[in-house]
Design a protein around this nucleic acid. Structure first.
Lengths: 237, 237
DNA sequence: TAGCTCAGTTGGTTAGAGCAGCTGACTCTT
DNA sequence: AAGAGTCAGCTGCTCTAACCAACTGAGCTA
């Protein structure tokens, strides 16, 4: 029945063609419209909030959510953390997911990135190099995120870009929570520049190779150069 | 504060290394351990349930969820439905997401699918052909789903497979809800067999081409044969 | 006019009561 | 003794009612 309440609220949004940010009925109004108690309404809204479908602002009201794929980050991240602590190589799997998808996409991107984006990417790599040279401990995560986000913007599919960003966020969140990753700023910069130049040149194979090398580098830094089946043994000896 | 309760329950799962299916404390126990009311506990659990982190069984107990990516289907599907009714080409974007990812993955799959999976795929295509020849109205969705799931199993990354299945499910759910898609069973069969044979032969380019054609066919049936930028104009004239 | 205060609206939290589904042990029948 | 039916108990589910906390905006004050 709780499920039913969620469905009815979703139906309300769909049927009323409510856009993101539109205000939903207040809790008392929903109580009356749906014929259930405040408690049930709130539980349904909490679930919808967790799915990013509605947004709740204390003292202000309830609104239609931004319809982003951001909520799936939390689920993915939790799954990965839980798996990691149970001895699975879930972090590596998440990285492989990113690698597989980005490797597949980079080819169709080669030579098709708009000039404006290329300029922005140039600026981002320059910033990376500045950060790498600085004493702040290497390239900031935000810069790396921006590079990947800008790179795939050229695909012209908003959903695709969001999903890729979600994967990046989940990976980054888990990585910083779990493991202390040594960074080699110079290598990171060089690889990003190579990706950019490969894409600019329009050479799909070169771009693919550049992406693969980049991810290979991250994988090495994760400390799992060998398949998971063998990685534990070394600790037993 | 509600957010805090969720975090503490997640922390409990992580710290106790609870595996999927393990039972969580009962609601009264959580009330005491977290020092909050029953209602707050329940709202937190509802949110975690929506994210697939816990599973609640009436009259039985609360358990650690299956850690699958299934919950993101609902969010994706809702987003797509809402976008569709607001006149966006969200369904096409979802299809393109699948196409982009699968096109990228099929290349690395060529020639590397285990013999057992190939046999299973053969059987699935055979079933498709039987369904296409029958009077039941074409290929069953479940058969198509099984084909794609089995195909990418060979990648050896469970997470990746789950994500692809989630995309498939979301697309299928929305498509059946929104539009009446004409099906040409014979073409569908032929394209799946071509994908299979291409992968078996180890010819990466041929496999990629086969996948692209398959998705091109679906896109055509969706009634959006031209890029989104131009698709609206034709209606204005 | 600028700033403050306060009342009203909205969501957040608590409390207590009773309902509903499931399990497992107990009892009655065969 | 074996089986089926029953019931007590746990579990989560829903409701009611009251109060707390955050935000807005109108009205008051300086």
């Amino acid at each position: 029945m709780a499920r039913d309440i969620q469905e009815r609220i979703k139906k309300l949004i769909i049927d009323s063609r409510l856009p993101s940010g539109a205000s939903l009925p207040t809790e008392p109004e929903l109580m009356e419209r749906l014929g259930v108690s405040r408690n049930s309404v709130r539980e349904a809204l909490k679930a919808l909030q967790a799915m990013g479908i509605v947004e709740i602002r204390h003292g202000f009201g309830t609104y239609v959510g931004p319809m982003s794929v951001a909520p799936m980050i939390e689920g993915l991240a939790f799954r990965t953390v839980a798996g990691h602590y149970r001895g699975e190589d879930s972090l590596l799997q998440l990285l492989e997911l990113r690698e597989a998808v980005e490797t597949g996409l980079i080819a169709r991107l080669a030579g098709r990135v708009p000039e404006a984006d290329l300029a922005e990417l140039d600026a981002l790599v320059a910033r990376m190099e500045a950060e790498a040279a600085g004493a702040e401990g290497g390239v900031r995560a935000e810069t790396d995120r921006a590079f990947h986000a800008t790179l795939y913007r050229g695909l012209g599919n908003l959903l695709l870009g969001e999903v890729l960003e979600a994967f990046w966020d989940a990976f980054h969140k888990v990585r910083t929570d779990l493991v202390d990753v040594p960074q080699d700023p110079k290598v990171t910069c060089r690889q990003h520049r190579e990706i950019l130049e490969a894409v600019r040149s329009g050479d799909a194979l070169r771009a693919e190779q550049a992406i693969r090398e980049h991810f290979g580098n991250i994988r090495t830094r994760l400390g799992t150069p060998v398949p998971a089946e063998h990685s534990h043994r070394s600790y037993d000896r």
